[in-house]
Amino acid sequence: MTTLLYAMLCLSAVVGLVATVARAIGYARAPLHLRWELYPVPHEAADRAAHGGSYFEQSNWWNRPAHFNLRGELTAMAAEMLFLKALREFNLRLWWRSFPFHFGLYLLIATAVVVLAAAVATVFTPLVMAGALGGMIHLLYRLTGIAGLALTLVGAAGLLHRRLTDKDLKTYTTPGDLFNLGLFMVALGLLAAGYALRPVGAPSVLGIVVGLVTWNTAIQVPWLLTAGLLLSAWLAAYIPFTHMSHFVGKYFTYHAVRWDDRVNRRGGSIERTLAEYLTFRPTWAAPHVTADGVRTWADVVTTNPTKGPKR
């Protein structure tokens, strides 16, 4: 059973990571699109970003040096990622449910990272972990773990409750949406129960991860905790295949769409990319488009459909 648990933990970590990276690569490799920004854009100069202005507010803007307000962008990103700023601003009722859920997940991810690091340290530098620093690390992951589980569970329950009771959401809720939230509650609930109810003498969380790192299959993990770990592992592998992977999508909707105000300069890289796209051969069927799968975009857009197609 312990071998199966270790195998599943490793497998789900790999599947979850590979699927997330694959999704990100898929989005990143999509062609450069026409500009579609939405203001405010936080990397604008601070005085303009404050009212949502752009460099178009300056005359002769094309001769002025490009300005990138990194601080503005990082501040906006941090507020959005950590505190779900947009949701807080535009949907406070939901934020009270969504924020604990997401923040709880961050804490759980942080816990996993700290415990893994602590396990590696325990194996390779046991003295450090036995000292004062080790004590602090033990305390840290216990705190983040417990808080993370509590917040995520409370948030998931709140979100599920809203999805079941708010009639505005009913039309748009699929069985999959309910299943996903239910899965969070069951997986993390089992994990919490398995941790809280583990019998005296059962291995600690760190002990289990040390066992994983050293592949010590002699460790006996209590069945409730095993169930919680297995289901949570499966959840981690499953998320990237669903729309719950919006942490990946959101990076692109913000950086590659809403905030992408890069200027196409003559002779620049954007222009070179566009030159390639103009050789694509569209197949749109409406006659006025004058596409036939042979003519390129360059041919199509330089054809005046009212003057008879240049074929």
Partner: peptide
Amino acid sequence: ENNWTFLQPLVLSMEHCAKCQT
């Protein structure tokens, strides 16, 4: 080939909506 112009934002909007109705 047909929609390089808006493919990326469109796919993102198709695949990521939390149906939160904000």
